[in-house]
Amino acid sequence: MFAIIGATGNVGFSTSSALRRAGVPVRAILRDTAKAARLSEIGCEIAMADLQDAGSLAKAIGDADAVQIIVPVSPRAKDPAGDLTRSIESVVDALAKARPKRVLAISDYGAHVADDIGMPSVFHGLEIRLGGLDAHVLVLRSAEHMHNWARVFPMAVASGSLPTFQDPLGMAQPTIAAQDLGVIAANLLLRPDSGRDLEVIHAEGPRRYSANDVAAAVSQLSGRVVHAQAVPRSRWKETFERTMPASLADLLIKANDAKNEGGLVDIAPNAGEVCYGTTELIDALRALVPPV
């Protein structure tokens, strides 16, 4: 049995679908019954649990041999950073209670960095906690998801300007389509145990893309000329805090500073395995760019 925590998200559903195509049983662990239908349709067993209730989560994991965990950010929480930390603590406690043989955790590029670089540092803490489990732990560090650009596409198509925190605009950054990440995770869960307690794998797309590349893709898909435009560093705080609480804004500001420095939010030095998705940026964005 393969239990997927966060099965309704883009990555979790992709993993669940790939595992079902492989013919293995999947238990989708959800906190909202309204989202269960499409998972039931592909043959998943459904279990309900609150991510911050370690007892109910351990019960939902039950006898699963392997568990995939995705700990999401809740932007609507009053303190998203604190909420994320509490969720991590709860999930790790649940895993310690349930004692599955294998755990695959979706982490973040840059999680190897000991200094505080925002969001990757939260996952640095997650990886440390997972290292204490009595299980074969697979840490799958993911590059940024391509669909994260979608929130600014309506503005970009309307104005001809794609706002970005990436600077310089031509610096290529690692990124990946969420569905590719889910398939990579499923393949890792299905392969034989390596015999090692902890493995770290990195995952990104077939090639790296810059903000200029994103603007070019939006131009091609929308039929309107769009140029990337860096948001001045002095305006980052006010820009982020228009749409999110200060604690989440702080994590993202630090992460973007680290990305722009280069070499930090990236594959760890002397890293082992790197897996590459097959979805190109323009194909990942095709359904996300609004028509003119």
Rank of each mutant, 00 (worst) to 15 (best):
L30N: 00
A94D: 01
E261H: 14
D197Y: 12
Q173M: 08
G110F: 04
S14P: 03
Q229I: 12
A150R: 07
G131T: 06
A246H: 15
V122I: 15
P154K: 12
S210E: 02
L252G: 10
A268T: 07
S87A: 15
R76Q: 14
T278H: 12
K97C: 11
V137K: 08
L162R: 06
L248Y: 05
F13E: 01
A216F: 02
A186C: 11
P80T: 13
A177N: 04
A186N: 02
V214Y: 00
A158D: 15
A7G: 02
V91D: 01
P174R: 05
N212V: 07
G43T: 05
Q166D: 13
V265R: 02
D213T: 09
N10S: 14
M171A: 15
Q179F: 00
A156M: 09
E41S: 14
A258I: 10
L181Y: 06
S56L: 07
L169V: 14
E273S: 14
P291T: 11
I70D: 00
T85A: 15
H202T: 14
L252Y: 12
A94C: 11
A135D: 10
V292Q: 14
A230P: 08
G118V: 05
S107V: 05
P269R: 10
P269G: 07
L57V: 06
S159G: 14
P291R: 11
S194Q: 06
L264P: 00
V91T: 09
G132W: 05
T279L: 04
P168L: 13
A211Q: 03
G160H: 10
V91N: 05
T278Y: 06
D283P: 04
